[in-house]
Nucleic acid binder design. Sequence first.
DNA 1: AGCTGGTCCTGATGGC
DNA 2: TGCCATCAGGACCAGC
Length: 272
Amino acid sequence: MPELPEVEVVRRGLAPQLTGRRLTRAVVRAPRLRWPIPALDRLLAGREVRDVGRRGKYLLMGFDDGWLIVHLGMSGTLLFTATPAPAQRHDHLDLEFEHGTLRMRDPRRFGAVLWHDRRDGPIEGHVLLAGLGIEPFDERFDADFLYRATRHRRTAIKTLLLGGTVVVGVGNIYASESLHRAGIRPTRAANRIAIDRYRRLVTEIRATLVEAIDRGGSSLRDFVSSHGEAGGFQLECLVYDRAGEPCRGCASPVRVLRQQQRSTYYCAVCQR
DNA sequence: AGCTGGTCCTGATGGC
DNA sequence: TGCCATCAGGACCAGC
């Protein structure tokens, strides 16, 4: 499940492979994703990739005329290979370069590939990006920011983190992990958390994301990098997917509950 | 069969 | 009462 670390791992893999390279052809094989993939060949053939960026869980490939916006949804992968295998079911898009092909695959089709033309304004103004919260590695993301943003938010802190309107990139795995490391109960109302505890939470969110990126992301099911490598962070999870197993801090069993129809893992002793 | 999950959308709720 | 921000739930999928 691509959260910020997985998307960042993909971005870091693709940037050196694609920056400054010219697309020879774009082949849309299966346009049906969350929204239809537009006819990209006429937009991208002959165009050079300027940079490969990221905003939240969105990957942004910059061209002179605009940006290709890619979201991996739940099951999306972007794989770059010098000689691509024959296309299979769920292979939605090939971006062909002289030195290889970037293939987007997404069995569950929660992902998206969209084009934002420069004539329609800066990429930050795109409807999918405009409402996003702050980047967790932005220096303005600190305890004061979180504290002020939550004064009248009564929703559970874990739900708030997942929402993406305050801070982006923290999905289901890293929300459980960060809250455990910060000692905060996932169900605690966001406006009932003291600023000192938010200070700790900011530190732990960043540390968790950095460690996950360093491990190549989490591969609980199908995540792989642009080189096809699985990540290893799932092996280091303190609570996620460990219901009933001993908390690594106090040995009491890790509990699981449902918030917004998603599983939350926590330790009832270490997290208050 | 039923569960899994990221995010957009819709409709409900609540505070001022 | 009305507006706006916030919030909850549904929908979308294939694979296991």
